[in-house]
């Protein structure tokens, strides 16, 4: 019988600790699949975030170094400049990347650092218990915006890809989602495309991934997936935002 589905080599044989319906485990698996398919396991160095995916090194089987909260792009920069032959990527959430790590991300993109960032946008601080994130939608209720995000008080959801697109050093920016099979396939393609950009040295690459957080959204997994289609992706439209010649 032909084997059609198995655990990727780059994914450790460990059960995920993530909540039911969380997108992290899908994203981990997609990254591991792409690493296997592109034969990059021996070259890859990953910088996991502070956040729910802080334990990514328990799952993705590549060299890893933890960065302080928000500093993923700076740590990845240091690694890549010393080891240009390696594949260097960080894995960061919305608080990590778009709040405390805004400067690091913005300037790494502007310098055209040859790194890839997987930016998991679930519109909320997951690990700390559901506080407002820079990507929380207007009106969205969180533990620190109990009446809903109010633009006058809290500002607007940040569209990271669109902001980075105007910088000279960014080469590839795409927004994808992992809430349904077709979207997951597109997400995998984007991950591979981002790595291709890095290997071809075209510049900075980032894939923003809209990812469900049923626990903190206080929805069922199915409702969360629907909410990404019906609400979240209207604020954060899916698709390629920038794709320089590669």
């Amino acid at each position: 019988m032909k084997k059609v589905y198995t655990r990727p080599k780059s994914l450790k044989d460990a059960p995920f600790h993530y909540c039911p319906g969380c997108g992290h485990s899908i994203i981990h698996r997609l990254i591991a699949e792409v690493i296997d398919e592109m034969e990059l396991q021996e070259k890859a160095i990953c910088v996991p975030p502070a956040g729910c995916a802080v334990l990514a090194y328990d799952y993705i089987d590549v060299d890893m170094v933890e960065a302080p909260h928000g500093r993923g792009a700076a740590v990845a920069t240091g690694i890549k400049r010393v080891r240009p032959e390696n594949l260097v990527f960080s894995y960061q959430g919305d608080g990590d990347l778009a709040a405390i790590g805004t400067a690091e991300t913005f300037h790494a993109a502007n310098r055209g650092e040859l790194i890839t960032i997987f930016f998991v946008n679930n519109a909320v601080y997951g690990m700390t218990g559901g506080q407002m994130a820079p990507t929380t939608l207007l009106g969205q209720k969180t533990t620190t915006s109990p009446a809903g995000r109010n633009a006058a008080r809290d500002g607007h959801p940040i569209k990271v890809c669109e902001v980075l697109a105007v910088l000279g050093g960014s080469a590839y920016l795409e927004r994808v989602a992992v809430n349904q099979p077709a979207a997951i396939k597109a997400a995998k393609k984007a991950i591979a495309r981002a790595f291709q950009h890095q290997l071809k040295k075209t510049g900075f690459s980032l894939v923003e991934i809209l990812s469900p957080c049923p626990t903190n959204w206080k929805m069922s997994p199915v409702e969360s997936c629907t909410w990404i289609d019906e609400v979240m992706s209207r604020e954060f439209p899916l698709g390629v935002i920038k794709d320089s010649k590669c």
């Binding site: 170094v65 700076a74 740590v75 990845a76 240091g78 690694i79």
Partner: peptide
């Protein structure tokens, strides 16, 4: 690299150090 901040600079040091 002239970094964007001291925070970035020390974290680039961390990355370069762990890279050997």
């Amino acid at each position: 690299i002239q970094a964007e901040s001291e925070l970035s600079a020390i974290n680039m040091v961390l990355g370069a150090s762990v890279a050997g």
